[in-house]
Design a protein around this nucleic acid. Sequence first.
DNA 1: AGCAAATATACGCTTAGACGCATAAAAATA
DNA 2: TATTTTTATGCGTCTAAGCGTATATTTGCT
Lengths: 82, 82
Amino acid sequence: MQLVRSPKQLGAALRRFRRDRKLTQTQLASRAGLRQATVSQVENGLETVKLKTVMDLVHALDLEFVLQPRTKGSHKDLEELF
Amino acid sequence: MQLVRSPKQLGAALRRFRRDRKLTQTQLASRAGLRQATVSQVENGLETVKLKTVMDLVHALDLEFVLQPRTKGSHKDLEELF
DNA sequence: AGCAAATATACGCTTAGACGCATAAAAATA
DNA sequence: TATTTTTATGCGTCTAAGCGTATATTTGCT
């Protein structure tokens, strides 16, 4: 269960789950109807990826999002500024 | 705490949280650095919205995502198989 | 080291998000 | 009912995602 507060965290979480499932980017891309290159971009934190692309990956990995109020200990991820 | 398995569910969840916080689309848009029109599109389930736009709204509403294995059915769990 | 698999990057192309600005439609309130 | 407030939609512009295809780079294995 992974917190996702930024595209970078999303990419890292997706990569962890993909590896847990012993899939390559190419295999995941095939399942999700995407290109391997696109999977790579998302896993590397591309901010402007489309929500549909993200959801396709989430579904292909048999995952789901939960949207919830922000938990405490919040102000340590200021990795927004690049 | 809202399950988000599609752009439509995301839009509906964001709308609920925004109303909980007594904000108009214009007020939320201002906080998030977006247009009111964009907030409207996202709340109505636009599939191809950019992840950055979604995250801007999530942050502006003081929310966060959790990425987790998909639960079975519509309730908490029933997962133990038999 | 060498090779194969996996991942990151490149180019040209089509499509569309988000923008500013504006207004139409719908919902709330007097 | 009329008026205000809120939400949805329209148009022209700019920018870039994702596509196919291909290749460069990194990683893993023997």
